[in-house]
Design a protein around this nucleic acid. Structure first.
Lengths: 192, 192
DNA sequence: AGATCGACCAAAAAACCAATATAGTCGAAA
DNA sequence: TTTCGACTATATTGGTTTTTTGGTCGATCT
């Protein structure tokens, strides 16, 4: 059953990459844990990189699903934006490989990793932009440029998580998120 | 004249560090360019690191002066905040060693570099917070928590400069800065 | 015919070692 | 007291050898 083998390789790889990282995980280890020959890995995947890329795509899709699910339960654009920010924050770091692909310096010279980073950033900005535009259409938000605004929002929450210095006071992400969102809503809500 | 020698060492070191970076610059080179013996460097400074730390302090003070000067010409807290953001953006990267100390990965294990990063972040947040509080006192801004708001502002402009992905579309910093500031002011200005 | 395997290979990475360079020291000299 | 540069311990570098790894491919199995 070729579908089973491919899935097995991906499952096994996801675990190994998650544990040891992309570079330190060898194809031999993947083959052994999957109980197949090494050449079989190459029958199903073009390269080690392709295996990793598929694993990243998987985790990325997982995050998307969680976010879409969270948005589905919300009515107002404010609630949607809040749900987006919090769901993203809550789940991204659990997706070890995806998070690694987005953040680890030593991976940045792989073309597919750069591509993933680009895509992720664009997707985030687009999702926020869609929410903002929905708010504008509903007459809830008054925004001059939804794209720039979406960029600001995405960058701000990215910056909140980034370790600008090692021994930082550790911004209180939960509290900051709420307060930032409040300032933001005040800034973009239509005036009465 | 011992004051002259110390200044000479700092001048020469600032140039060399700027050109070659901290690690690649040797104390021998500093001594030669300063036309002194190597042991004389150690007479005035405890270590190569201390020389670098002094150079960084110098450049940091330069930036502070430029910022203070820019703020002095401004009346409204909005103009002050704008001046802060733009002056910082315009001059920081010219201060090669300071910028390097703030951003280069390979320097992050030096304790004084980490200290500098901490201090810089705190100072930025404090400066913005002071401006915000002035705005609140003058009845121009209506801000619930000036500290959190200051943090958001500082983080946002940091994020704007950071290379989240290599081949990013390169956010238009000038345009984005203005627009972000507009959204921000709308969010924190007192409602009429 | 297609799927599987593992021996094999070229290249990369790691380990090893000698040579060189560097930060810091210190005694002699000014 | 200040200055210097030879010296030292340690780190770094460059070259060589060994090992490992991603990927290939022919033999074998199904």
């Amino acid at each position: 059953m070729e579908i089973d083998k491919r899935i097995t390789i991906l499952n096994v790889s996801q675990a190994l990459f998650s544990r040891f990282g992309f570079v330190k995980t060898t194809v031999d280890e993947i083959a052994k844990l999957a109980r197949i020959g090494k050449g079989t890995v190459y029958h199903y995947f073009k390269s080690k990189e392709q295996v990793f890329a598929e694993v990243i795509k998987r985790e990325s899709n997982t995050l998307q699903e969680k976010i879409q699910k969270a948005l589905r339960g919300k009515q107002t654009p404010q609630d949607k934006l809040t749900a987006f920010v919090k769901t993203r924050s809550r789940h991204l770091k659990d997706l070890t490989n995806y998070y690694s692909a987005l953040t680890d310096d030593y991976l940045e010279h792989y073309a597919f990793v750069e591509e993933t980073r680009q895509k992720y950033l664009e997707r985030e900005i687009q999702t926020v932009k869609d929410i903002l535009e929905e708010g504008v259409e509903k007459g809830v938000f008054d925004i001059e440029d939804t794209k720039i605004t979406a960029q600001a929002i995405v960058l701000l929450f990215k910056a909140l998580e980034y370790p600008w210095s090692v021994k930082k006071d550790k911004f209180d992400i939960e509290l900051s998120t709420n307060k930032f969102l409040n300032i933001l809503f005040k800034g973009i809500e239509k005036r009465k």
